[in-house]
Amino acid sequence: MPEPISRDTVAKVARLARLDLTEAEVDRMTTQLAGMLEHFCDVDALDLSNVQPLNQPIPLTNVLRDDVEQPSLDRDEVLGSAPAAQDGRFRVPPIIGFEE
């Protein structure tokens, strides 16, 4: 079984998940995640050595439609519900150049 999850790992996972957690949230989350992961160790009672993982319950693969043009969503309607749009596109803050 892996090491119990540390506060540093929780902070790193929060960055990966793009979640700005407060210090108090990181503390609380460390305790709660550790509890859940410990519970997960129950499965160590099972012999899983020759078991194939089951990703999804039905055996459909590569479902593709014919490559024919079809109408799409109305662009103005889609952009109309976005937080910010300009010139027919989603508008976002600067992507680079503000690293500290």
Binding site: F40, V43, L48, V51, P53, L54
Partner: peptide, 8 residues
């Protein structure tokens, strides 16, 4: 591991 349990 969870996916293997799912198979079981």
């Amino acid at each position: 591991k969870a996916l293997k349990v799912r198979r079981l």
